[in-house]
Design a protein around this nucleic acid. Structure first.
Lengths: 232, 232
DNA sequence: TCGGATGCTGAACGCATGTTTAATATGCTA
DNA sequence: TAGCATATTAAACATGCGTTCAGCATCCGA
């Protein structure tokens, strides 16, 4: 059996190298030899430890899921210090985030598991905050929790774009400093100046129209736009 | 030179097959032979048309970007009917979305280009709506536009999770019907019952504290949580 | 001290890959 | 119709892949 202490050293080094390369280049593009070289071992040893390349992938999946989910509780208990620790050595986790991004956009069961855990966490947080009167009672808690989870994940999955748009790494202290207020502003005051759009959409939907679906022309959730067929 | 009409037929069939397979399985995992089989041609023909596998990838990148960005104007002009058309044959575009998701999470320059175009569109939309009094003046237009774009993309990039959480495809009519109101509700009334959190965060940040970054414990943007190192 | 298990290496194997090439069919142009 | 470019194929090629294997070193319990 595999003890926790054995998980360090060589085996862990191989796993870390695999996570980094899988995350950066994708599973298919990354070779066992490249992983072995990055971990400074022979290709044979990689297979010795993980059975096959796919076994290595599964081990990486399990590791990343546990690494993220396992810290969830910690976070909800003491968010501030957890964030401080996070910022302390953020570099160490960029590979994990890149791997996570690939997991979430390609549909493995490990990704489902991870997403479910995060969704549950968000739901629980929502319930608590609403009970405490910090958050208002929303239209639909479940769907809100779903989209809040998606919104929270988006900057991680598209980290590169956030970095480009912000001009600096979002996960750096300066990045958080710049984005915190605008995001909290959005989540506090909303986007619209009144509930015209909401009322209009609600009315349009209760008309239970047939093929003509109407989100309201100004729903920002339309972004990005769907293409239409070249020729009807 | 390559005319537009030639872009149909065989060459287009190969490209479409490649987009579908790259999107589903990733670039490295997908073989030229698999693409050829899906397009019902010989492997040699794929290389004849696109030079190399990587040339094919670039052609797919260009195609997907144009397909999404090219429809952007159309959308802003008449969103409702564009959505209706979209819903009419949504199946045709699932491959494009999967491909898009992979593009955005792996950092190609084509993905950057696409994201920039979408971001510009969101910014313009924001300006218009604010000028029209439909939306309020936000804390920071640029950062808001960035995050709104991310939020809009998130359900596409993590389509599988939305489908799982909603119990049905988000891009179906029923899916849109179920998620429109909660999302508009979020963007209309916000999340918090008052501006306690915002004020607290603002104050914490202006204290220009050193290593201790404070987002406020209840910022939903903390989701998912960063892991911390095993041992300090 | 022994002996088996485990960690690890380097070379080798077989195979599937991306790509090339020669040859054939097809269609366009003059 | 002649001729040339293009579309297409099947086969062959070279490479790099995941994987296997034999062998050596190192540890650890008896």
């Amino acid at each position: 059996m595999r003890s926790a202490s054995e998980d360090l050293s060589t085996r862990a080094r191989i796993r870390d190298a695999a996570v980094a390369l899988f995350g950066r280049d994708g599973f298919g593009t990354t070779t066992v030899r490249a992983i072995a070289a990055a971990a400074d071992v022979s290709p044979g040893l990689v297979l010795h430890h993980f059975g096959s390349k796919d076994g290595l992938r599964q081990a990486c999946d399990r590791y990343v899921v546990e690494e993220f989910v396992g810290r969830k509780d910690e976070m909800t208990r003491d968010a501030t210090s957890a964030i401080a620790r996070w910022l302390a050595d953020v570099d160490r986790f960029h590979p994990l985030i890149d791997y996570l991004a690939r997991m979430l956009s390609s549909g493995t069961t490990a990704a489902d598991e991870l997403f479910d855990a995060l969704l549950t966490g968000t739901s629980r947080m929502l319930d608590e905050q609403i009970a405490a009167g910090i958050m208002r009672e929303p239209e639909d808690r479940d769907i809100l929790a779903l989209y809040l989870t998606l919104h929270g994940l988006a900057p991680l999955v598209m980290r590169r774009q956030v970095t480009r748009g912000l001009g600096l790494d979002q996960l750096s202290e300066e990045g958080i400093r710049r984005s915190t207020i605008p995001i909290l502003d959005l989540y506090t005051h909303g986007l619209y100046s009144d509930d015209r759009m909401l009322v209009a959409a609600r009315e349009a939907l209760t008309r239970t129209s047939g093929p003509r679906s109407d989100k309201g022309e100004n729903d920002p959730n339309q972004d990005p736009d769907p293409p239409r067929p070249r020729r009807s």
